[in-house]
Design a protein around this nucleic acid. Structure first.
Lengths: 343, 343
DNA sequence: CTGAAAGCGCTTACAG
DNA sequence: CTGAAAGCGCTTACAG
């Protein structure tokens, strides 16, 4: 079973057509001027008739291109990465590329192992996303310095300035949420933050603070409760906030925590948005399927997937300056979880 | 940038150690008896010192193994496939395998294209899941007959008896749901079915019918509303059921529709489970994060992922009989969405 | 427009 | 225990 091999090779076609393998190769690769129209037709027909499919490994050995890239994500369970991946794959397919998906399971060592192995002949480029915690970038800097194409996503840290990277505007996202709530009349706005160890969680908290400042609101640490991006942490953080009270709206720093917060609110017999308004930083299937649908800031993961793909393709084709930094602008998506507060 | 290539090859090591490449190859591949202890040490040291990493493409060309497999899923957005994929990848990593994830986007043509291309030298085996609609299995039968390792997941249709395949007990799952509701005293049980074109949706409906029969309940087609596995379809199917009335419980044929149904129920001002009990066929993050958490039948996608991996590995290693059929048993996971009905 | 030849980096009988 | 040689399937100068 496991010994399945290419039946038909370029040589079979060559001998069937009584030409050299070089000519077959030229035809199949559309090398202009390398053959007559008559020969071309004959070769194409035979190739099709024999059901020829090129052996990518053999080709790779010479061209030094595998037409494969790999994406490293902490966990494909996050909706963000699903949107990101699907669009990225679609985009790269257009260039004849296939993509390996590697779940690093938020493990530093596993990530490093993947990076070092994949870049050696297996893939033409790497897209590496955040680990959702403090991360080491040594291996990345290493291979990037050797000229291997790498695009970083939501990755922060020292030395990364020399790399090509993408991010979302975490600060801006939280800020937009605060602004929206302020605009609807809310003055006491609570916040459920992500883990201290994820850089983007720190940014979102920062954005919350800036949003308050923008609107002349005072920061009250009683209105902030810490979670760790998980559903359960959202629920318990919200329970703490509810005990303290003194706010009319709450912002969850990601989709899971936002939904977790809704659970705590509902369980307490309160209604959204009548009693408490809820906003999410992350607009995903989880927030959209809530009843009521959550008003949330969307990071546009799909667009980011396409952008990552296009940057990587450029690097692979040597069309890119050494580094580029791109920041995706978040977008507010209205739901039904925010009510107007009148003076 | 894109010209990153292996720096050091087996030849570099050979000349540095003044041995042949054959000897280096033997040492690096741990071929027993192929070298002296002294040579081995010298070669290993040099390999490490030079930072040698083997070129997988070159090796593949000869061994006809790439240590790569591909998984084809209709859409990674489905929670089922996330669980399936993560465990599968983890399992295969243990064998030194890496995995390509291919979203077929529920498109027949794209799937076929993937299948025909991937099996030709790129991957050692293929795991192909349902398309969630009527699907053609021609390409699969084709490559499988040629001896290419393929494991099918939730794939039904003619001629497939000769292939190795996995499935979940769709009939049993819906049946378990009906039985559970019956046990809690429900006698009028509604059902939101999936699309007619997905075989597993037909099975789930069948299971609903069998469940009714098991318990001596009569089938009333007014209690069945058709959806298509999407969230929106769940909501509108539920709205129709609510207009008709005459039931105390409802079963959604998948997670999205179940959650969609909850929305319709809540929007109508009804409470779960006080007014209507809800059960889901599919226990995923979407049903678990609902408030109340949905009592649902879990298909154990992760277990299935591991099983798929182990079957495929066996096929790749020629350790498997021509075909094997495995059916994962679903498991009831209690939530808080079902109430007891008293006489 | 076409072919002979070398070679990508590796493995594998075969001979010694 | 070790090396010379062939070859995996393909591409690419080079010469004609």
């Amino acid at each position: 079973m496991g010994n399945y091999a290419n039946r038909v090779t370029i040589r079979d076609i060559a001998s069937a057509c009584e030409v050299s393998t070089a000519t077959v190769s030229r035809v199949l690769n559309h090398i202009p001027g390398g053959y007559s129209a008559e020969t071309e037709e004959r070769i194409r027909d035979t190739a099709e008739k024999l059901g020829y499919v090129p052996n990518r490994m053999a080709r790779s050995l010479i061209t030094r291109r595998t037409n494969l890239i790999a994406v490293l994500v902490p966990d494909i369970h996050y909706c963000f990465f699903q949107d990101f991946f699907v669009r990225l794959e679609q985009y790269l397919n257009g260039f004849g590329y296939r993509v390996l998906l590697c779940n690093t399971q938020e493990q530093q060592e596993l990530e490093e192992q993947y990076i070092r192995e994949l870049c050696n002949g297996l893939v033409d480029g790497l897209i590496v996303s955040t680990l959702n915690k403090d991360e080491s970038n040594e291996a990345l800097l290493d291979i990037s310095r050797k000229g291997f194409p790498v695009v970083l996503l939501e990755r922060y840290g020292e030395g990364l300035t020399e790399l090509c990277r993408l991010s979302v505007d975490n600060v801006g996202a939280a800020r937009v949420a605060v602004n929206h709530l302020y605009g609807e009349g809310h003055r006491r706005i609570a916040f459920i933050s992500g883990g201290e160890d994820a850089q983007n969680a720190r940014f979102r908290f920062e954005g919350y603070l800036e949003g308050l400042k923008d609107n002349g609101l005072e920061y009250d640490k009683e209105l902030v409760s810490d979670g760790n991006y998980s559903f359960e942490s959202g629920t318990s953080a919200m329970q703490k906030l509810l005990e303290r009270g003194g706010f009319t709206a709450v912002i969850g720093a990601n989709d899971l925590m936002t939904v977790g917060a809704c659970k705590a609110i509902t369980q307490k017999g309160l209604r959204i948005p009548d009693d408490i308004s809820v906003m999410g930083v992350d607009n995903t299937i989880l927030t959209r399927t809530q009843e009521p649908a959550i008003t949330a800031v969307d990071f546009c993961a799909a667009e980011l997937g396409e952008k990552a793909g296009s940057l990587l393709m450029k690097m692979i084709r040597d069309e890119l300056p050494e580094k580029e930094i791109y920041m995706q602008e978040p977008r507010l998506v209205p739901g039904h979880s925010v009510s107007k507060v009148h003076g």
